[in-house]
């Protein structure tokens, strides 16, 4: 039997860990225990960048992290982070699980990574300590922590906020002390890092969708017999579907939970004004990295059932 090291940053309480357990079971079942995963949650093998690097170099076999962590390697992935590109989860899944998504995974191959499947981080939501966010005006002047992704920074500049990238490890303290007013993350992160303890207002802004990408060291993948390769991809996708389902179930629970913890929640906003103001971000990405055809592909599956 082959033991494979699989690392990710999410804590044990997260759906990523639960689904990784499922992934491990599925893989063992499909290969008659020939492939066995050894799980390393909580970033014990390093942060996302270190995990990606380790997987490329082969010191780690598989890793799972947000797509934006790969955009330094493959700039086209910036397209996925562009605000208001995906209408809803179904739209995102249609694109990612289809031809377009596969093309993006394949683009990672030249970087020694075999993209196995897209898992789910969910839509990003804005939280802050200052005021309920309902319109773009409410975002103006907020010191907001974003990822270091160029398109996230650009979008919040367009909205008139002061975006600053900062490591997730420093975020809780920065929000607690007020060095930052606001942050934007999917609900799962808000919950597992307990950011609701240091934030007052949550807006279900759904301003950008964040997929997770599950990758494997390419030479390692190529060395597997075809039947095991097939099992690997199937198990990764099935576990991914399960994780998406878990996240969908968790949304209501997390919104209830943060309300109980004292957060004010704005559940619906009109996305139109936000989308209008941040629309130039799309051209910004195209000018910088290309990807016009990918945007087109995303748009064509927008309303297909």
């Amino acid at each position: 039997a082959t033991r494979l090291r699989f690392g990710y940053e999410a804590p044990r309480s997260d759906s990523q860990h639960v689904a990784s357990e499922r992934f491990k079971e599925l893989l063992a079942a499909k290969t008659g225990n020939e492939l066995q995963l050894q799980l390393f949650p909580e970033g014990t093998l390093g942060n996302a960048q270190a995990l990606i690097n380790g997987t490329r170099g082969g010191t780690i076999d598989l890793e799972l992290s947000g797509s934006s962590n790969f955009s330094g390697l493959e700039p086209l992935l910036n397209v996925l982070d562009t605000p208001f590109t995906f209408k809803d989860e179904a739209h995102a899944y249609r694109f990612l699980d289809g031809e377009g998504g596969q093309k993006l995974l394949d683009a990672l191959e030249k970087h020694n990574l075999k993209g196995l499947a897209y898992w789910d981080n969910g839509f990003r939501m804005i939280t802050n300590t200052k005021r309920p966010v309902r319109t773009p005006d409410d975002v103006k002047g907020l010191k907001i922590r974003t990822t270091a992704s160029a398109v996230h920074i650009e979008a919040f500049k367009l909205l008139g906020a002061n975006p600053a990238p900062m490591p997730l490890a420093e975020l809780y303290t920065a929000l607690e002390t007020g060095a930052m007013d606001a942050q934007e993350h999917p609900l799962g992160v808000l919950w597992s890092v307990k950011l609701y303890e240091v934030q007052k207002h949550l807006t279900l802004s759904r301003h950008a969708y964040s997929p997770l990408i599950l990758v494997m060291n390419k030479p390692k993948f190529d060395s597997l017999p075809p039947a095991q390769q097939k099992a690997m991809i199937e198990a990764a996708r099935e576990a991914g579907a399960y994780q998406r389902q878990l996240n969908a179930q968790n949304v209501a629970m997390i919104v209830e939970g943060v309300k109980k913890a004292g957060m004010q929640v704005v559940e619906t906003i009109d996305p139109q004004p936000f989308a209008r103001i941040t629309a130039p971000a799309r051209q910004f990405i195209i000018n910088k990295f290309g990807g016009e055809d990918i945007f087109k592909q995303i748009d064509t599956v927008r309303d297909v059932p």
């Binding site: 390093g46 942060n47 270190a50 380790g54 170099g57 082969g58 010191t59 490890a169």
Partner: peptide, 18 residues
């Protein structure tokens, strides 16, 4: 045994804002 483990983790240890 893999020498990359040394280099990779040395950088991981020092590449830290706090």
């Amino acid at each position: 045994f893999d020498t990359q483990i040394i280099a990779q983790n040395l950088v991981l240890g020092a590449d830290n804002f706090p």
